[in-house]
Design a protein around this nucleic acid. Structure first.
Length: 216
DNA sequence: TTGTGTTTTATTGCCTCC
DNA sequence: GGAGGCAATAAAACACAA
């Protein structure tokens, strides 16, 4: 090491370099920077040429290039980090927004599911409480020989009972009454349906269809 | 002037390539 | 095995606030 210093740390005039370090002059640094811009790797010929031109030791030139490459690398790493950090910050904001949106949508979905469940349970309750139509379907077809029940209706639009039973229903009740069966059951069912104030036309249609008259 | 942080120059040790 | 590159580090030079 000491030998190396003694061998290398001398200037072009051969005098030993007394001071351990000295900064390069403005023009020297400028020329080195210019050469570095052309190519940051230093081939031997260029090293010797630069050293001669700038009055430096070839080793000083190669050390300068080495340190310069290290500085470039450090700055590039800083730039890369800066870009990555800003990208990360943007993604973080987007992630937070998406997370909030997700929470909102999940909450809405839960509410809608609960609502759907309530609606379905109400429908089920209606079916359980109203075995009439099921009874009629079970009964299959029986010709209405009495000719009492025959009513056309618009299919599939809800029909409301506004306080009183339609005359056709009363006829139906009378029909069953005349057959001496289930009058009370039917009346109770109609009363419930009236309370609920709702019955679809298709249900009524099937209800009053001659072909779908219940078998008693 | 001095203490402290930053920049620049140089060294050391290790690794790769020819 | 020698030359050259790189990472880590030392040390000198420099900048600047107190």
């Amino acid at each position: 090491m000491l030998d190396r210093l003694e061998q290398e740390d001398s200037y072009e005039d051969g005098s030993p370099m007394l001071e351990k370090k000295r900064r390069l002059g403005y023009d020297q640094v400028k020329a080195l920077e210019k050469s570095f811009e052309l190519d940051n790797k230093l081939e031997p010929e260029r090293k010797v040429k630069l050293a001669e031109d700038l009055g430096l030791q070839p080793r000083q030139v190669s050390i300068w290039f080495q340190n310069r490459r290290a500085r470039t690398k450090t700055k590039q790493l800083e730039r890369d980090y800066s870009v990555l950090k800003s990208n990360f910050d943007v993604l973080k904001v987007e992630y937070t927004n998406l997370q909030q949106e997700n929470e909102t949508l999940t909450r809405k979905l839960r509410e809608l599911k609960a609502k759907l469940l309530r609606v379905e349970s109400n429908e089920l309750e209606k079916e359980v409480e109203c075995p009439i139509s099921r009874g009629i379907e079970r009964g299959g077809s029986e010709s209405n020989s009495s000719g009492i029940i025959k009513e056309e209706s618009n299919v599939d639009s809800p029909m409301c009972f506004n306080g009183s039973l339609p005359s056709s229903m009363i006829n139906l009740v009378h029909y069953y009454d005349s057959r001496g069966s289930q009058e009370n059951v039917f009346q109770n069912q109609f009363m419930r349906m009236e309370e609920q104030n709702f019955l679809s036309n298709s249900e009524l249609f099937s209800f009053f269809s001659v072909d779908q008259s219940p078998t008693l």
